[in-house]
Amino acid sequence: MIRSMTSFASGKGALGAYSWSCELRSVNAKGLDLRLRVPDWLDGLEAALRADLGKALNRGNVTLSLKVSRDEGGGTLALNPAAMAAVLDALTALEAEALERGLTLAPTSAGELLAQRGMMEAASAEDDTAPLSAAIRAAFPALLEAFLQMRRDEGAALAEVLAGQISRIEELTATAATLAEARKEAMAETLKSNLARVLDSPAGADPDRVAQELALIAVKADVTEELDRLGAHVRAAQDLLAKGGPVGRKLDFLMQEFNREANTLCSKSQSSDLTAVGLELKAVIDQMREQVQNVE
């Protein structure tokens, strides 16, 4: 089975106060280009994910984006020393000023002090990120499998389209062979007529020179080799589709060969019908080349 280079998958997970979301997407490319955006404070995670992707993929521009967040609301609280000192200093100054003016203030409770803004803050102790990295790695195979499945599904659709285009090329090649065979008689009659006109002219002609020119014309008009090579390319393309796997580069090379033979067929045709078939061949080959660009 062939695989497409176009795919997308996403996943989410959580561990304790942490949650993450991950997106994996790819488009076509000549080789394998991995671009990972992973938080650098998760030591070793990017290298591990890159290795997993490298083992599973052969071609494509692949982007992995991992976002990790922490729910601070569920953490422990601690006194903010700076805020506490500021509140106590302000309270001391207030009591001193009241006493100087002969005023008596009610005692301030600890609860009232703690209720002051900024007195309490979330604890910021350093966490061990190894369990989080391990949890993300454990969840990654499922995401990667969903990503690969989309590649396989897209590849199956691509294979169906390519098989139809190869069959059309095979049909057009057979039509071209029939037209080329039918053209031989007409070309022979034309050559005979032209040769007779030259030989009957008063100036005459050099028989050896005439023979050379006729041989050259025959070679230039013969499309047998082009048709044979087109047939061979059709069989090679069918074999690659049946084989499956990462055959995109080989199919791309075949497209160049298909196009070369179709161009030569058109230049040698010397027949409007054969030229029309050659042009249709070129159109189908161009359409097929566009599809091949997405094959891994």
Rank of each mutant, 00 (worst) to 15 (best):
S7G: 11
S7D: 10
G11S: 10
G16F: 09
S19E: 13
S26F: 06
V27Y: 11
N28D: 13
G31V: 08
L36S: 03
L36W: 05
D40C: 04
L42R: 00
D43R: 00
A48D: 04
A51N: 06
G60I: 07
D71G: 00
G73S: 15
T76A: 15
A78V: 14
V87C: 07
L88M: 08
A90P: 12
L91Y: 12
A93H: 13
E95L: 01
A98Q: 05
L99S: 15
T104W: 07
A115N: 07
Q116S: 04
S124H: 12
L132Q: 03
L132R: 00
A135I: 01
L143W: 02
E145F: 01
A146E: 14
G155E: 05
A156E: 15
A159N: 08
V161R: 11
A163K: 12
S167G: 14
E170G: 09
P202Y: 06
P207H: 03
P207F: 03
V210Y: 07
V210Q: 01
L214N: 08
V219Q: 13
L227N: 07
L230V: 07
H233V: 09
A236Y: 12
A237V: 09
A242I: 08
G245F: 06
P246K: 00
G248V: 06
K250D: 14
F253S: 10
F253V: 13
R260C: 07
S271D: 12
S272Y: 09
D286E: 15
D286H: 09
M288C: 08
N294F: 07
